[in-house]
Computed example of a mutant assay.
Amino acid sequence: MLLMIPGPVQLHERIIRAMARQMIGHRTADFSAIMEFCVEKLREIFGTKGDICLISGSGTAGMEAAIASFSRVKKIATLENGKFGERLGDIAERYTQVERVKVPWGESFELDAVKEALDNGCEAVAFVHNETSTGILNPAKEIAKLAKEYDALVIMDAITSAGGDYVKMDEWGVDVAIVGSQKCLGAPPGLAAVAVSEKAWDYYNERCPYYLDLAAYRKKLKDMQTPYTPAVPLFFALAEALKIIDEEGLENRIQRHRILSAAVRKWAVEAGLELFPNLNKYSSYSNTVTAIKMPEGVSDSELRGTLKKEYGILVSGGQGELKGKIFRIGTMGNVGKFETVSTLAALEDVLMRKNAIKPALQYAQILLRDLQ
């Protein structure tokens, strides 16, 4: 099965082999060396000199750790224009007062709405950088800049952008950011990294969940250890994935993600399909997943079901209220030209049988021509 979904992603053979290593003790110098390498490379990917807390858990564990550990605020604004923005709001409501800045899924935030929340006494802002449920890239730099005018804490879900698009925590003024291992980093699911600025510790709440208390992870970071038994094989995999990123070069990797997603968008538009999110002057299309409206007269099962059954290719459908209304093509992690062209060619075949599109693969191939 070829996974063309927004995570988990296809694994490089080197990463698969890395997980087959014999176990090592997690309180040994061998593990500390792996941990130190991961921390150093993740700092580069996050664009920060801050602490890197590595949690054996999903991206959602990282989200909760970020919100809960720094919940000593009277009120937090959560910006919600998709499934994962809403998840931030759901998590935050367990720990503090929340002002949920909502727009319909796939719509863009206006900065005036964020400013209003800050004027209403919000001391922190939490948002999703790359909202995979709708294929929109939210304006992280602009949101963080506005929040800093109020000296507010900035928490950013970078789970599906870090490693595949620009994330510049220190430059933008982001205090806390999260990434999941199974997205643009190209590793298996099961690890979350939370990057933390020095300022964020001013908001630390010691009454956060025991396992997700980032102060415990920070304390053990001095010895390049984790406070609790880590998922050691996943650290083997993450280290190998980060070596692959280092070999490719982070800038080259980001440009590969951007070229792949641009090719998918070009194919969709030339085929007569409609991209889903509605953009404003601040937002842009995601560079790691493309959301496309389902063509009229085609059902989700006809499109995704046929693609899976006949070609062995898995793309994602819509979530929540968008179920059956959109489909989503992931171009993140270890995906390249071969996988992208194969997916678009297969989709073109399926949809042309339904007379739902016109041939457009050539337009995508032009953009992909020079991508190695």
Rank of each mutant, 00 (worst) to 15 (best):
L2G: 09
M4D: 02
M4Q: 11
P8L: 03
P8S: 10
V9S: 01
I16K: 15
I16N: 03
I16G: 04
R17C: 03
R17W: 11
Q22N: 14
M23C: 00
M23R: 14
G25H: 08
A29H: 05
S32G: 08
A33F: 00
M35W: 14
F37Y: 15
L42N: 04
I45W: 02
I52H: 08
I55G: 09
S58T: 15
S58P: 11
T60H: 12
M63V: 09
M63C: 10
E64I: 01
A65Y: 03
A66Y: 03
A66D: 00
A68F: 02
K74F: 08
G82R: 02
G85P: 12
L88T: 03
E93H: 13
T96D: 05
V101R: 07
P104A: 05
W105G: 12
W105N: 13
G106P: 10
E107V: 01
S108F: 07
E116Q: 11
D119A: 09
D119R: 13
N120I: 03
G121Y: 06
G121S: 05
C122N: 11
V128Q: 10
N130I: 02
A140W: 04
A147G: 03
I155G: 07
I155S: 07
D157C: 05
I159L: 10
A162I: 04
D170H: 02
E171V: 09
G173M: 09
G173L: 00
G173W: 09
D175P: 05
V176M: 03
C184W: 09
C184Y: 06
L185G: 11
P188L: 03
P189E: 13
P189V: 05
L191C: 03
K199E: 14
W201T: 02
E206Q: 12
C208H: 06
C208I: 05
Y210P: 10
Y211C: 04
Y211A: 13
D213E: 07
L214Q: 08
L214M: 10
A215P: 07
A216H: 14
R218S: 10
K220Y: 13
L221K: 04
P227C: 09
T229M: 14
A231F: 11
V232H: 06
P233M: 08
A237C: 05
E240W: 01
L242E: 10
I244Q: 05
E251M: 06
R253P: 01
I254C: 04
H257A: 09
L260T: 07
R265H: 06
K266W: 01
W267F: 15
P277F: 00
K281E: 15
S283A: 15
T288F: 04
T288A: 11
V289G: 01
A291K: 01
A291H: 01
P295D: 07
G297N: 04
V298E: 07
V298H: 05
S301C: 01
S301M: 12
S301Y: 12
E302G: 08
L303S: 04
R304N: 10
G305D: 06
T306M: 07
G312L: 01
G324H: 01
I329R: 00
G330V: 02
M332V: 11
G333T: 03
G333R: 00
F338Q: 12
E339P: 00
T340A: 02
T343M: 05
A345Y: 12
L347E: 02
L347Q: 06
L347I: 14
V350W: 04
M352W: 02
R353I: 04
R353G: 15
N355T: 08
K358E: 13
Y363R: 10
L367Y: 14
R369M: 13
